[in-house]
């Protein structure tokens, strides 16, 4: 068994919810599997619905692999996009991401 890692989801009101997961799958799956609110993931991780949008805390943002152009294109069209926006279904969980913190937007459209 691999060691679990901790991922923290912060809601728009600042409430934090930390989950312990094995380092595989994606941030979106970690949220959905642990009933974290604020992530809808309509397309189930297909990089097409953008309803798994999160803001990655700045100190973590740079640690993530570059987004694929398909993801960037989707993010660009989100009204509430910020420089640290990512689609959580495109962030693969690896041991190095232990402690990752992301914030969910006011709403997923």
């Amino acid at each position: 068994m691999t060691d679990k890692i901790q991922i923290t989801f912060r809601d728009p009101a600042g409430q934090e919810n930390t989950v312990s997961v094995e380092p595989r799958g994606t941030v979106m799956e970690a949220a959905v599997m642990n009933n974290v609110g604020g992530i809808i993931a309509e397309c189930g991780g297909g990089c097409s619905c953008a309803t798994c949008h999160v803001y990655v805390d700045p100190e973590w943002f740079a640690a993530l692999p570059e987004p694929d152009p398909t993801e960037s294109e989707l993010v660009e069209f989100l009204e509430d996009a910020r420089p640290c926006s990512r689609l959580s279904c495109q962030i693969q969980l690896v041991p190095e991401l232990d402690g990752l913190t992301v914030q969910t937007p006011d709403q997923q459209n």
Binding site: E42, C43, G44, G46, S48, C49, T70, F77
Partner: peptide, 23 residues
Amino acid sequence: RRPNRHLAFGFGPHMCIGQHVAK
């Protein structure tokens, strides 16, 4: 057209799994 929110690949859980290959 931008954005082009077509539904040719469907929507929701059954949305085309091969869409990125196709594109």
